[in-house]
Design a protein around this nucleic acid. Sequence first.
DNA 1: AAAATAGTGTCTATCAGACACTATTTG
DNA 2: CAAATAGTGTCTGATAGACACTATTTT
Lengths: 233, 233
Amino acid sequence: MSRVRQTVTLTADLVILTIRNGTLCVLVVERGNEPFAGHLALPGGFLRGDESLDETAARELAEETGMRAEGLHLRQVGVYSAPDRDPRSPRVVTCAYLAIAPDLPLPAAGSDARSAHWLPVVEVQRMGLAFDHDRILSDALELARAELQFRTIATAFCGEEFTIAELRKVYEVIWGVKLDKSNFHRKVTDADGFIVPTGGKRPTGNGRPAALYRAGEATTLSPPMMMPRSSDV
Amino acid sequence: MSRVRQTVTLTADLVILTIRNGTLCVLVVERGNEPFAGHLALPGGFLRGDESLDETAARELAEETGMRAEGLHLRQVGVYSAPDRDPRSPRVVTCAYLAIAPDLPLPAAGSDARSAHWLPVVEVQRMGLAFDHDRILSDALELARAELQFRTIATAFCGEEFTIAELRKVYEVIWGVKLDKSNFHRKVTDADGFIVPTGGKRPTGNGRPAALYRAGEATTLSPPMMMPRSSDV
DNA sequence: AAAATAGTGTCTATCAGACACTATTTG
DNA sequence: CAAATAGTGTCTGATAGACACTATTTT
């Protein structure tokens, strides 16, 4: 029996990241059903007969956050298929997706009869998640760190309009480093199609108001924004 | 029916790359069974009940090439789950893997009752593959190009011992560029744990014999070997 | 004016690319 | 010696990081 092909059910699980109050947060749900009822887990859902897993992920993302998935950063992290990762039968295999959201209010709780919350990533890692979702979360974070270097996804954490300081904060929070203000400014304004000035300004309370930008057309970042190498050493 | 969770069968498909006579080649099989009987396709196999997809991929790799998968570069490319990608029922979803092999003789043909061949990638792309394997192949190639920059996988294309010229040829073939001999030499010898001199020399027919190296301990390449940016411009 | 934040200019160490040069082999 | 390939040295332009400086706002 172990040597024959097996039928499984497929889920798409989502690691939806955002930045709130300068802290990297992830959307987690409290599970209502077994297995792991009452435990925290990543949001996700089952593949339907008429859709691909990418479509499953986009549908779940829309249900959980109200975001339209079109033009949104939604990227496969990997497949998690250990035979014992989920006690259910038929066996459940999942494909994890990374999504990035601006700091949005969540739709009314209970839209999916589950309670969804933004929680700081560090706190989630301390508490632990159901299934193999701890591993999925850390893999997704690693992917996000790498993608920041080569793709223009950092703007997805910001609203429609943002300042360069806000964009810099994205890099600092996800990479866990402090970046030089001047050098960052130079690099993002030089990068081709990364950000476009809107002409507007945003008063910041104290100090000179910052110029506003919106995301440019480019999806890849050239030249790349390399993560400081001091951490490897 | 389309709105309920669906059971599927899972396969792991392999994009196994090697370099033969200075040409990038991929292992393809001629399908013996429907669907697509007689067509070329990527090797692959069904998930069994006692294994993960990573293990399925490693098992198939061993069956097709005779390589032991331990310590071998085997990396998920992505999941391909379009509802119409395979006409069979129950629906077939695949996870593609990238593997890299030195220039090995294949095990006796017909080990899996299928004929496996190394074919140049460009020729395979011209002829076309079954299912969505054309797309999988091009995604795997893109991944291989990117991984060459940051991981020490180039040595996996070479035998146990290799010269720096052979290693350079790997980069040149996969990136499709010509690299400067001196600068390449400097970069690979400076990179930490990338290659280790064995002390041996290999006569190349004509000319000064080249020093031999073996793969070092490092898996990530620091500093990275950046692909020349001229191609983007 | 002081404080605070945005943004610019400039110096320097480092590194990639170009390329001339030396070294060691075969014929 | 000529040819061929391996390997070294050096110059230069581009870029990242450090940091001093200017600009514009609120209190």
